[in-house]
């Protein structure tokens, strides 16, 4: 059985990182803190006996998603906007709503009798691969179709419609300030 101390350290760091993700004033900082949270999650997967998932998490999230997000931030930010508020004005109701949801879920979790951890070894990647190609093969193929559709969709959405200086708006004229 894994010890408790690494779990608690990881949990505390995860909470800290999540707070920084939703509270950072600078979007780049928020993205980088999300990267920290995702790496810590990969470590949590390792502790929970899922080494294959930890690898997937590191490759896809920290390798792919964070890079994409950083590109997104850089592409959609103008210099004079760097100090602009990225929060809406309704922070207090939002905090109350999420705290209320947490209290509801926490009371349900505390009152439920949950079993202790069963002893179990880490699941090797070969087992997961076998499950993908036998029991879950249809879902696996549908997933690859979905990834293809997402890729084509992103290309169609992101391409420019003319090659002049000013991109043509897709759906009518926007209000340019």
């Amino acid at each position: 059985m894994t010890g408790s101390l690494p779990f608690f350290v990881l949990g505390a760091l995860l909470l800290l990182g999540a707070v920084r993700v939703v509270a950072s004033r600078d979007l780049v900082h928020a993205v980088l803190w999300l990267g920290v949270v995702l790496v810590l999650t990969a470590l949590m997967f390792l502790l929970l006996g899922a080494p294959f998932l930890a690898g997937i998490q590191l490759l896809l999230y920290t390798g792919g998603v964070i890079t994409l997000m950083l590109f997104g931030v850089m592409l959609t930010r103008r210099h004079h906007e760097i100090g602009v508020d990225i929060d809406s004005s309704r922070r207090l109701p939002a905090a109350l709503a999420s705290a209320g949801l947490f209290v509801a879920m926490a009371s349900a979790i505390v009152r439920t009798k949950l079993p202790a951890w069963p002893p179990s070894a880490p699941i090797p990647a070969i087992e997961i691969g076998r499950a993908f190609l036998t029991d879950h093969v249809v879902a696996f193929e549908v997933l690859s179709l979905l990834l293809l559709a997402a890729m084509i969709g992103a290309i169609v959405l992101g391409r420019r419609h003319d090659f002049g200086d000013e991109p043509e708006p897709l759906y009518g004229k926007g209000h340019r300030s």
């Binding site: 995860l14 999540a18 979007l27 931030v73 508020d85 905090a95 999420s98 705290a99």
Partner: peptide, 17 residues
Amino acid sequence: ALFCMGIYGLLARRNAI
């Protein structure tokens, strides 16, 4: 707790990213 922080972020932010 992590999930609720995500909900707070969804409600309190206005930047799409």
